[in-house]
Design a protein around this nucleic acid. Structure first.
Length: 456
RNA sequence: GUAGGCAUAGCUCAGUUGGUUAGAGCACCAGAUUGUGGUUCUGGGGGUCGUGGGUUCGAGCCCCAUUGCUUACCCCA
């Protein structure tokens, strides 16, 4: 067979031992915080029925779903007329019934509906699994990446929103980030803004445009809004809102002023104010909390709070986001269940931590001691010691005899194993083993008991 | 979907206006060192210059096509 050049699909990556140690450090930290706040872990399949996912992420989103080809002779079953048009979209539904999950929220909604009779509400769950998007990869953007999601369904209390702010603060603070901002917005405020210029139907165009403010500036936003069918008068009206400045309190006051005629807009202000007031009672340790009405990105199923987290230490897209969705499970036939959730972008957090050198040395903890033998007799002699060490929870390895000691030492060195034990005829006779500190190069003669004691 | 950049050893990259046998560092293997890694010294293996075509006496270098990677835009974590 002709050999092919090995490679992985675009936007996917292998994770080697050193990377896995660091990734697990991130996952373990986030998971432990989730658990501490009462969230329970679930998992859902990598693939879902295509019908479960389609239509949940907008037209663009549908295109970015990885579809899985049906098994068997699927083409023969397709309507020949449709096939003849050569229009892929027309036949997609007939040749693909499954797809890789695009996020964790929609599968979770599906899960809640399917398991509603065994769930006690409010249900707090977390989920750490990969998701797939058929996107064009670029910096900080992959086709396979992990999301760490926590959601609450069945509670409309704003306490949940406040708790998520605290979770972000605690988890990212624990990971060593020192300067990051949790941005808070509310879809109802955005609806209010659309309402006062009588453009409620164009709310998506409005939000997509103002979301870009920090990227393209006011002129750019103005231009984009004009292109999207807004008038100069509309823009003048909402300009004070877009250019909102000052403290969260000042922004809220100004918003209430502008949105005075919009009931829903004022409701949004109330919600934001309540969340902020909870945080006053439970102050954050590290994070900045900022009301940012240009924050509008994301999925259009958000109905209340919208979150996004950005680090201020390196240039990177958002490292987390989330929000409240009032009727996600409605699509699956369960009405009136509200949910709110957040997500950590683990891969981006990894990149940020790598750049800032935030991984502690302990994050890559491996074997503590390697036993090296000169021959088979040494191997036999070493086994009881090996077992003793492992019983004391010391990570220990025995290098299979046969290789030169030089080779064995190189192995320990490359694997950054801090200690080695050498067993040869001399050692077996005296019962005193050569115990070497690989960092300093110092070697001592110690009994097995002493060595176990040292490493414990 | 749109636009740019790149492609030479396992990895990171040099390679002059087109000139004879394509280099370096790191990594790997062996020796200096028959009971010792990391440091040092010596030697060694390893290449269809992404692929296909064209120009030329001659192409790693120029032209065209193609594939892959990558950056930005749209969108999004």
């Amino acid at each position: 067979m002709a050999s092919i050049k090995p490679s992985v699909p675009k936007g996917t990556r292998d994770f080697s031992p050193a990377e896995m140690a660091k990734r697990n450090y991130i996952f373990d930290t986030i998971k432990s915080v989730f658990r501490k706040y009462g969230y329970q872990q679930i998992e859902t399949p990598a693939m879902e029925n295509l019908s479960t996912l389609m239509g949940k992420y907008g037209e663009e989103g549908d295109k970015l779903i990885f579809k899985i080809l049906n098994s068997g002779d699927f083409l023969s079953k397709v309507d020949q007329q449709k096939l003849a048009t050569q229009n892929s979209q027309l036949v997609t539904g007939e040749i693909s019934e499954k797809a890789l999950r695009y996020d964790l929220t929609v599968p979770f909604a599906r899960y809640v509906v399917m398991h509603q009779h065994e769930i006690t509400f409010p249900f707090k769950r977390f989920q750490v699994q990969p998701v797939w998007r058929a996107d064009r990869p670029q910096r900080g953007r992959y086709r396979e990446f992990y999301q760490c999601d926590a959601d609450v369904v069945g509670s409309d209390s704003l306490l949940n929103e406040a708790e998520f702010v605290m979770i972000y603060d605690e988890a990212l603070g624990k990971l060593g980030l020192k300067d990051f901002t949790i941005k808070l917005n509310n879809r109802k405020i955005l609806s209010g803004i659309a309402e006062i210029i009588d453009k409620s139907d164009n709310i998506i165009d409005l939000t997509v445009a103002i979301d870009k403010l920090d990227k393209i500036g006011l002129d750019g936003v103005t231009k984009e809004l004009l292109e999207r069918g807004f008038t100069q008068a509309d823009i003048e009206k909402i300009k004070p809102v877009i250019l909102l400045q000052g403290t969260n309190e000042a922004k809220l006051a100004s918003l209430r002023d502008t949105l005075a005629k919009s009931e829903i807009g004022l409701k949004g202000c109330d919600e934001v104010e309540t969340v902020l007031s909870y945080i006053v009672d439970c102050p954050l340790k590290t994070a900045n909390l900022e009301l940012d009405i240009t924050l509008a990105r994301g999925l259009n199923y958000y109905t209340g709070a919208i979150f996004e987290v950005k680090t201020n230490e390196v240039a990177m897209g958002s490292i987390g986001g989330g929000g409240r969705y009032d009727d996600l499970t409605g699509m699956f036939g369960l009405k009136g269940l509200t949910g709110v959730g957040i997500s950590f972008g683990a891969d981006r957090i990894y990149d940020v931590m790598e750049e800032l050198n935030l991984f502690p040395a302990a994050a890559s903890q491996g074997t503590q001691v390697l036993i090296c033998c000169f021959d088979k007799d040494g191997e036999r002699y070493a086994l009881p010691l090996l077992q003793q060490l492992r019983e004391k929870d010391v990570y220990a390895e025995l290098y299979p005899a046969g290789a030169k000691i030089k080779k064995q030492m190189e192995y320990a060195n490359n694997k950054q194993i801090p200690y080695t034990i050498l067993i040869g005829s001399e050692e077996m006779q005296s019962g005193l083993l050569a115990f070497k500190d690989m960092g300093s190069g110092v070697q001592e003669k110690l009994s097995a008991e002493e060595i176990v004691f040292r490493l414990k």
